Simulated assay, not measured.
Amino acid sequence: MGNQRRGLPFEPDRGKAGSTPSAGNAKATQAIPKSVANRMARRVAVFTGLPTLAGMGVFVGSYVLITRDIADIAPGTTLAASGFCFLLGLGGLSYGVLSASWEANDGSLLGLENLRTNLDRMRSSIRAQKQNRSN
């Protein structure tokens, strides 16, 4: 009794006694296919990496402009511009995951056609988890 515990969401099945998913739960415990995970990772790297680099570039650019007396930039402006870039990168993290195609084909460059489908899947998954907890 002390050794049996409920698995965490997305925790892999380690083959322990009592951890075999039931037939109704088998679909919910499937892992993300490797090709889809790689596609998500590429999208996250691009949609998060570029804004993050831009956010760091704002600091460097402001420093160069101020030290060479090219422009007088207020520190608040630098902070707001870099903060906007970092927030854009945070949004890119979610977008990179939600815009990836789960089909065999890669989809389009931006993945806009997959965004609504994946959002609907996520919402239905959240609803199903809430129903399972209340039952």
Rank of each mutant, 00 (worst) to 15 (best):
R14D: 15
P9Q: 11
E103C: 04
R121M: 02
G57M: 05
N132Q: 05
E103T: 13
I70N: 04
T77S: 08
V44L: 03
S22L: 03
P75H: 10
P75L: 07
S108T: 13
V64C: 08
R121V: 01
E11N: 09
A37N: 06
S22W: 00
D69M: 09
F59H: 15
G7Q: 14
G92Y: 02
Q129D: 07
L115H: 02
G24M: 01
D13T: 07
P51H: 08
S134P: 00
V44H: 00
F10W: 14
L88M: 13
I70M: 14
L119Y: 02
D106M: 02
A100K: 05
E11W: 03
K16D: 15
F47C: 13
V44Q: 01
G96N: 03
I73V: 12
K130M: 04
N118F: 01
Q129F: 02
K27F: 02
L93S: 08
T78S: 12
Q131G: 00
F59S: 14
C85D: 07
P9R: 11
R5N: 15
S19V: 06
S125C: 01
G89M: 09
S35K: 06
A26T: 02
L87V: 11
G57W: 07
L112E: 04
G91T: 08
P12Q: 10
L110E: 03
V36R: 10
G91D: 09
A37S: 10
F59W: 14
S22A: 12
T117C: 02
L112P: 00
R5V: 14
A28V: 09
G107D: 06
I66P: 00
A17D: 12
Q131K: 08
R43K: 10
R39T: 10
R68I: 04
A45I: 07
Y95G: 13
N105Y: 05
S99Y: 01
A26Q: 04
M1A: 15
T78H: 03
I73A: 04
